[in-house]
């Protein structure tokens, strides 16, 4: 799911956003805080959390669109390491470094296949991932905003000269992806070890999955996410190599990328 967001960002605003999960995490934490301290109902708090995730993401996007409009992907991405660090420590300060009592929004098994219980969370995230991926495809291919976005991602300066509101559009993308990731974290968090660091570090498997699509193909990003989850589940079954499990996303990324880029011997095409 986060992989879809990452791919979207990479394609549309030329950034691999390292703080993607962190913005979601922060939004999620705000929601939890609102529930437990202000006594808000869960749904309202979640909505506010999602809005905050979107707003945070928009701020980062605005910074990058303002000062790094012409920089290459690496530089733009490196900048997002800053907010990642900032958000994690900010949430330590505001919410402490204990795992947060996320109240599950979705709970319980959905169905079971051959003795393996598939929880609602899994079903919803998978469905959501597919919906977002398909939705984005349609928007990008069919609507005029989609065309403008693609123009923007390929040739920012040319697009701007054509009168496309570059900044507005890219900040928009940042906002939407921020909101989506906050939603995802709110759903997934109860089933994960949910302290700030682990949640923000969801970015690692997400990036692994997104890499399958080379940060460009949304469908492959979804497949990558699923494959990675299954792979990790399988490896976890075998007790002897359980500590190898941690390296699965890492090896997955490396192996796949090396195969993909085996011909990229040089940094420039000419």
């Amino acid at each position: 799911m986060l992989a879809v967001c990452l791919t979207l960002m990479a394609r549309l605003v030329r950034v691999v956003n390292f703080s993607q999960a962190a913005t979601g995490m922060f939004g999620g934490f705000v929601a939890v805080w609102l529930v437990s301290n202000a006594g808000m109902p869960v749904w309202l708090a979640t909505v506010i959390g999602i809005l905050i995730g979107g707003a945070l993401s928009a701020i980062i996007g605005w910074i990058i669109a303002t000062w790094l409009a012409e920089a290459d992907t690496s530089t733009r991405s490196a900048v997002t390491v800053g907010p990642l660090l900032l958000l994690i420590s900010l949430s330590f300060i505001l919410f402490g470094n204990k795992p947060q009592p996320f109240r599950p929004i979705l709970a319980g098994p959905a169905f079971s296949v051959g003795g393996v219980v598939v929880s609602q969370v899994t079903v919803v995230t998978v469905v959501l991932a597919i919906v977002v991926a398909v939705g984005c495809r349609i928007i990008l291919a069919k609507t005029s905003a989609g065309t403008q976005l693609r123009a923007l991602s390929e040739r920012p300066t040319t697009a701007e000269l054509l009168g496309i509101p570059a900044k507005l559009l890219s900040v928009g993308v940042w906002t939407v992806t921020g909101m989506i990731s906050a939603l995802v974290v709110s759903i997934v968090a109860p089933s994960q070890s949910n302290d700030a660091t682990s949640l923000a570090m969801l970015i690692v498997p997400a990036a692994a999955a997104a890499l399958l699509g080379g940060f460009r193909r949304l469908d492959l990003a979804v497949v990558g996410g699923l494959a990675l989850g299954i792979l990790q589940g399988l490896v976890a079954q075998i007790d002897q190599i359980s500590f190898v499990r941690n390296f699965v996303p890492f090896l997955f990324i490396v192996g796949f990328l090396l195969w993909l880029q085996r011909k990229e011997v040089w940094d420039a095409s000419r």
Binding site: V16, F18, D72, T73, S74, S77, A78, M201, I203, V204, A207, A208, L211, F215, N246, F247, P249, F250, I253, V254, L257, L258, Q261, R262, E264, V265, D267
Partner: peptide
């Protein structure tokens, strides 16, 4: 073979693992 962001993701993945 990997450059820029891809390499950053790999090193971060290694650190996390």
């Amino acid at each position: 073979r990997l450059r820029g962001v891809n390499l950053a993701v790999v090193t971060l993945g290694f650190a996390a693992a």
